[in-house]
Amino acid sequence: MTQPFDLVVYGATGFTGRLVVEYLLQRYPASSGGPRWAMGGRSAAKLATVRDEVGAPADTPLVVADASDPASLRALMAQTRLVLTTVGPYQLYGSELVAACAAAGVDYVDLCGEPAWMRQMIDVHEAAAKASGARIVFSCGFDSIPFDLGVFLLQKEFRHRFGHPASRVRGRVRQMKGTFSGGTAASLKATLAAAAANPAVLDLLKNPFSLTPGFTGPRQPPGNKPMLDEALGLWVAPFVMAAINTRNVHRSNFLLQHAYGADFVYDEMLVTGAGDKGEALANAVASDKSLGASDGPKPGEGPSRAEREAGFYDLLFVGQDDAGRSLRVGVRGDRDPGYGSTSKMIAEAAVCLLQQSAAATPGGIWTPAPAMGDRLIDRLQAHAGLRFAVEEA
Rank of each mutant, 00 (worst) to 15 (best):
residue 157 E to D: 14
residue 151 V to F: 13
residue 152 F to G: 08
residue 104 A to H: 06
residue 146 P to D: 08
residue 127 A to C: 12
residue 150 G to Q: 15
residue 139 S to E: 05
residue 43 S to T: 01
residue 87 V to L: 14
residue 93 Y to S: 03
residue 139 S to Y: 05
residue 74 R to D: 14
residue 124 V to I: 15
residue 70 P to W: 01
residue 97 L to D: 02
residue 50 V to L: 05
residue 92 L to M: 14
residue 104 A to D: 02
residue 144 S to G: 10
residue 85 T to V: 04
residue 91 Q to T: 04
residue 150 G to I: 12
residue 60 T to E: 00
residue 144 S to I: 07
residue 50 V to I: 15
residue 150 G to T: 13
residue 80 T to L: 04
residue 87 V to Q: 02
residue 113 G to L: 12
residue 136 I to P: 13
residue 140 C to N: 08
residue 41 G to Q: 00
residue 105 G to N: 05
residue 130 K to Q: 15
residue 112 C to N: 13
residue 81 R to H: 05
residue 118 M to G: 03
residue 133 G to M: 13
residue 61 P to W: 04
residue 149 L to E: 11
residue 137 V to I: 14
residue 76 L to A: 07
residue 37 W to S: 07
residue 37 W to E: 02
residue 145 I to R: 05
residue 139 S to V: 01
residue 117 W to N: 08
residue 124 V to T: 15
residue 161 R to F: 07
residue 120 Q to W: 01
residue 79 Q to H: 05
residue 160 H to M: 07
residue 124 V to G: 15
residue 60 T to K: 03
residue 156 K to E: 14
residue 136 I to V: 15
residue 134 A to K: 02
residue 110 D to H: 11
residue 97 L to P: 08
residue 49 T to D: 15
residue 86 T to Y: 09
residue 145 I to K: 12
residue 126 E to V: 12
residue 127 A to N: 12
residue 93 Y to D: 10
residue 146 P to S: 09
residue 78 A to V: 10
residue 99 A to R: 15
residue 105 G to T: 12
residue 140 C to Q: 01
residue 120 Q to M: 03
residue 149 L to H: 14
residue 75 A to D: 10
residue 67 A to V: 08
residue 96 E to V: 09
residue 128 A to I: 13
residue 81 R to L: 10
residue 99 A to F: 14
residue 147 F to P: 07
residue 74 R to V: 07
residue 67 A to H: 00
residue 129 A to G: 13
residue 65 A to M: 00
residue 75 A to P: 10
residue 134 A to R: 11
residue 151 V to D: 12
residue 83 V to P: 04
residue 39 M to F: 04
residue 134 A to W: 09
residue 96 E to D: 14
residue 46 K to P: 09
residue 105 G to D: 11
residue 137 V to C: 11
residue 112 C to V: 10
residue 125 H to C: 08
residue 145 I to T: 08
residue 46 K to T: 02
residue 78 A to P: 07
residue 158 F to E: 09
residue 59 D to K: 11
residue 96 E to R: 15
residue 156 K to P: 07
residue 161 R to W: 11
